[in-house]
Nucleic acid binder design. Structure first.
Length: 571
DNA sequence: GCCGTTTTCGGCCCGACTGTTTTCAGTCG
């Protein structure tokens, strides 16, 4: 699967470089689309190639097919090397500056010999940019601003960071008398990382909505202001865009600003074929211009003969086709989660007591809660010795008697050693209700060794869940390398659940791997890995990740009732 | 470069805002 990522990256770079060429707009789009398709494949691109199915992937025609084959075979692409020779590598960096696109970069290269960020900054500081025809003082200032933004390293933020901020702003606007307000964009689609926060308001008084937005106490700077669209930057650097439309257009605008871009492009092409035009104000008959939908999202989809679908599904990964056939699957809801099977307490490296965690779980209406503190060899996590573990089990049983409305489970997050062995002997694991196995060490072993390690752990009869299966930390480290197909197969064969860890920096399995697991019928467990009571709220993000992988509740271990879970775990 | 329940050629989503211009190109989402 790492190969899929590599192929997509190469196609993306081809697209980046092609942008600098004249008249290559549609080629750029074709390469980008192919990259997205390959990125979201749930099978290995090499397998597809071997089985002769590569050409059936949408967006892959003859030319790109041959290039993908070249990459699969040789690991390289000559066409990309040729393009790299045509343009200085630094120009790609120049294009990453906000408001600098291919045309501007091309001009700066041609007229000022700007080949990288350093030269761009120099040219701006020496006021050579403002002297170009079509450029001016403001453009020069914006370029300098853009360079500073890039260098501040403010790229995308974690969903877990953006979500509470977006919700707070949404509430601020709603509380000022605007009932029609919603998050949009990647935040509403619950992507694991978010570029900026999008907010949509339906109102007949756009001016007052804008004023309310700008008056938000956390506002640092107004970046852009028009009659229907305003952007601000918050004190922590997060950018928020707000759009205001009339209530009669709210549904169309919500659909449009939720995206994704790819979903919208496909939807709008479809609309054209059906004789309609869609924009953010409504759906219109092409001939008469008559407006036929716009008030609600359901209406927009419905007029195109489509079924509404959850925002998490809108990535143009086949949902439009299913929607036209009325076959959008029923995917997991947060309300269907019955318990949390991976949490920590003060016994190891958590901060709250079992009682506090239990009260919080009761507040969520959970039927069960598992305490899975770290095992003995994880010294940094204050792992439990065998004696402390056994003492902990007794404590769980004792506290459990005081809480008749929830089933407290004694468990462990047990270390998987480098050979795949577990950190406690079998007779100790036997005493536990649930065993969550995890890799926290030796990340850099070869893919073969790591696969063997994971397969050994999964085939251990005491293991119920494989925690954060890839070990990635978003923005910090890649996951370890292993054969995901083999691990999923083993999980299915051994009835072991793969975890979706709800921690914002983990969300692992990610959406694509969730889809892979689902297609293979592998059970998933959505856990918070909470180290305090507040982190039990992270469940929302794990569920969102499952929804992005179209996972139904039937495949989720902790969507089972206590009775069914107990049977499943042989308790 | 891809694609076709009208097409193998001629299309390819659509609009807001900015900056620099007198009518629009470029960028963004």
């Amino acid at each position: 699967m790492e190969l899929n990522v590599k192929v997509a990256a190469i196609l993306d770079e081809v697209a980046d470089l092609l942008e600098l060429k004249e008249d290559s707009f549609f080629q750029v789009r074709a390469y980008r689309r192919a990259a997205r398709e390959i990125e979201s494949l749930t099978a290995d691109v090499k397998d597809l190639y071997i089985r002769g199915h590569l050409a059936q992937v949408p967006g892959i025609g003859k030319a790109i097919h041959d290039k993908v084959v070249e990459i699969v075979r040789t690991g390289e692409l000559q066409y990309l090397k040729d393009l790299r020779n045509e343009f200085p590598a630094g120009l790609l960096q120049v294009m990453r500056v906000p408001d600098v696109g291919p045309k501007t970069a091309g001009r700066l290269y041609k007229d000022l010999k700007v080949t990288n960020l350093q030269y761009l900054r120099l040219a701006a500081e020496q006021h050579r940019i403002r002297r170009l025809k079509g450029f001016g003082e403001r453009t020069e200032e914006n370029i300098l601003k853009g360079i500073r933004f890039l260098e501040s390293g403010q790229g995308r933020m974690l969903l877990g960071y953006a979500y509470p901020r977006g919700k707070a702003l949404e509430e601020h606007i709603r509380s000022h008398g605007f009932p029609q307000v919603s998050l949009g964009g990647s935040l509403r689609r619950m992507k694991e990382t978010i570029g900026d926060i999008d907010i949509l308001v339906g109102s007949d008084d756009p001016q007052r909505a804008m004023d309310t937005f700008i008056s938000y106490p956390q506002t640092e700077e107004v970046l852009l202001k028009g009659p229907t669209k305003t952007s601000i930057r918050l004190v922590d650097g997060v950018q928020v865009d707000m759009r205001v439309v009339e209530p009669s257009s709210y549904g169309a605008a919500l659909q449009y600003f939720t995206g994704s871009k790819e979903h919208n492009v496909t939807l709008r092409s479809l609309a054209i074929d059906l004789g309609y035009k869609i924009n953010e104000y409504g759906v219109y008959r092409k001939e008469s211009g008559e407006k036929v939908a716009g008030e609600t999202e359901e209406g927009v989809y419905s007029v195109l003969g489509m079924q509404w679908m959850p925002s998490e599904m809108r990535e143009d990964r086949g949902e439009i086709d299913l929607s036209r056939k009325g076959r959008i699957p029923r995917i997991l809801e947060l309300s269907e989660i019955r318990g949390d099977l991976h949490t920590h307490t003060e016994a190891s490296d958590g901060v709250d007591s079992m009682e506090a965690m239990t009260e919080a779980a009761l507040g969520k209406g959970y039927e069960y809660l598992a305490f899975t503190d770290h095992s003995r060899s994880l010294k940094v996590g204050n792992g439990l010795s065998v004696e402390r573990l056994q003492e902990n089990i007794r404590l769980v049983r004792k506290i459990g008697e005081r809480y008749p409305d929830i089933h407290l489970m004694a468990g462990t997050e047990v270390e998987i050693d480098e050979k795949g062995g577990l950190d406690y002997p079998p007779e100790v694991l036997e005493e536990l209700d649930i065993v969550v196995a995890a890799v926290h060490s030796r990340f850099k072993m070869s893919s073969e060794e790591m696969t063997e390690r994971l397969l050994t752990a999964i085939s251990n009869e005491h293991v119920h869940i494989l925690a954060h299966p890839t070990g990635r930390i978003i923005g910090e480290r890649e996951g370890y390398q292993f054969d995901m197909e083999a691990v999923l197969q083993a999980a299915k064969d051994n009835d072991v659940a793969m975890e979706i860890n709800s921690f914002p920096e983990r969300l692992d399995l990610n959406d694509t791997y969730c889809a892979m697991a689902m297609q293979r019928g592998v059970t998933l467990s959505i856990d918070t890995d909470a180290h305090n009571v507040r982190q039990l709220d992270y469940m929302l993000f794990g569920v969102a990740t499952a929804r992005r992988g179209w996972v139904p509740k039937e495949l989720v271990l902790n969507a089972l009732s206590w009775d069914d879970l107990r049977k499943r775990l042989d308790l």
